[in-house]
Design a protein around this nucleic acid. Structure first.
Lengths: 247, 247
DNA sequence: CGCGGGTTTGAGTCCCTTCAATCGTCGTGG
DNA sequence: CCACGACGATTGAAGGGACTCAAACCCGCG
């Protein structure tokens, strides 16, 4: 039933077990470390931790001990508030780093939950802090990843602060498209791993509003969407849609 | 006319010129570096760069060369969009680090503008990357600062995504209150360095709405506000206000 | 086949924006 | 000292976008 050639950013059947043959090498922090130091087997780096769908990689308040890179599957991070009003603060897919929120306080300040069965590399932070020639590049890589996360948060804030709901959804789809493309998947046809409610939470709107705008974009011929399956029909129009208000 | 004892987080008349007598020592990255290594005069660290009100510390697209810590005064960062819809993405005061947005791409992705006459320390990033025993703690400090920034962005996203305008404004005031308190100023009485429009942009609303809610909070007796001067009369009620909807 | 969760869609309401006018404040110059 | 202008802040009226509540629908699954 599922088209086998469709980009879904899900686990590939045979997972690479060594970094040297890992497709994420360019984006993966762990691989940097392993490759730069192939002999150091004593380093307790776990490069294939399995996390089942719906399971927590870490929870708010957990002691921070490690950074993670997504090898396969995808995650959401959820900020929990006292009174039950949560919000999805990020979606993460293969190659993305997770866990940096905990470095500052040494406590995680959000939940990281697998949207599907997934695998991660675990990078114990104590190892990162140890000095060594080969770690210099790793430090740099981590800082770049954190900087990138700050920039991405800026952009989400921009989205939440200045755009109306339809524009946010369009921007969200374009962002997903880019990220799929960067990972070698089709930028125009993909499967959403998150629910409408999770999208709504991330974009600061009601899930009914998400549905409405999906329908609207479809009726306008910009996208084709049925349930989690999305096909972008008119990227240019979608990009125009993001800026619709400021013409 | 202006109460001289009012906390304004502005430049003190006599600026400390050495880190050893700098009041920000606890929070300041530069001071860590200098103190850990007082003899290294060849390190090109500028610890008293003056930036006039309205001047740019850096602009979007500038090459990233250094991190900055605010010694006195305050800053805003502004994300610029293609079509003129900007947004304030952060306010920074004494002790805060600026510039981490540029580490990833080696280009700054926002403007940093002084809200008042200010002084910053400049930490050339090339120096940071050089290895050395005494740099280890600095690296750690920078990563903690970046992690803290990610957490703060999370919270702003939470604000923008889940709270109505009045709650956002209340949360904003409480956040300022905390930050002033952390710097030794009064948590209940302070002067805003930013305009209504800048607050509105940061909180993702209209400046008219900011004014309206300031008036509303005043009429309810939670705060006293005239122009930039704010006095918090009922912190507990203000905190309740943040969660007003989820009871 | 019935169940449950997620999705879509409708109707009504309200919060917030938009547009605009007024007011207050501050700096400048007559 | 006050008039003046510029800019920010406040406030009003009107309109609309998004939420709320709720019902119907769809789909996967036991």
């Amino acid at each position: 039933m599922g088209a086998p050639d469709l980009a879904v950013a899900t686990s590939s059947p045979g997972l690479p077990t060594r970094c040297s043959i890992c497709g994420l090498r360019e984006a993966c922090l762990t691989c940097d470390l392993m490759l730069a130091n192939p002999a150091r087997r004593e380093e307790p780096i776990v490069n294939d931790l399995h996390v089942g769908q719906g399971s927590y990689l870490y929870r708010t308040g957990d002691a921070f001990t490690a950074l993670y890179t997504v090898r396969s599957g995808s995650y959401k991070t959820v900020q929990t508030m006292e009174l039950g009003r949560d919000q999805v603060t990020g979606f993460y897919m293969a190659g993305d780093m997770l866990g940096a929120d905990g470095i500052g306080t040494e406590l995680h300040d959000c939940d990281a939950i697998a949207l599907e069965d997934s695998h991660v590399c675990v990078i114990p932070y104590a190892q990162v802090l140890k000095q060594g020639r080969y770690k210099r590049d790793l430090q740099n890589r981590i800082q770049k990843a954190m900087s990138g996360e700050i920039v991405r948060k800026h952009n989400v804030m921009l989205l939440l602060g200045t755009r109306r709901t339809e524009e946010r959804l369009a921007a969200f789809l374009l962002n997903l498209s880019e990220r799929f493309a960067a990972r070698g998947y089709s930028p125009t046809e993909f499967v959403l791993r998150m629910t409408r409610r999770e999208i709504a939470s991330y974009l600061g709107m009601n899930d009914a509003t998400v549905s409405r705008h999906f329908s609207k974009l479809r009726s306008e011929g910009l996208i084709d969407v049925q349930n989690k399956r999305v096909r972008i029909l008119d990227i240019a129009a979608l990009m125009r849609c993001v800026n619709s208000k400021a013409d």
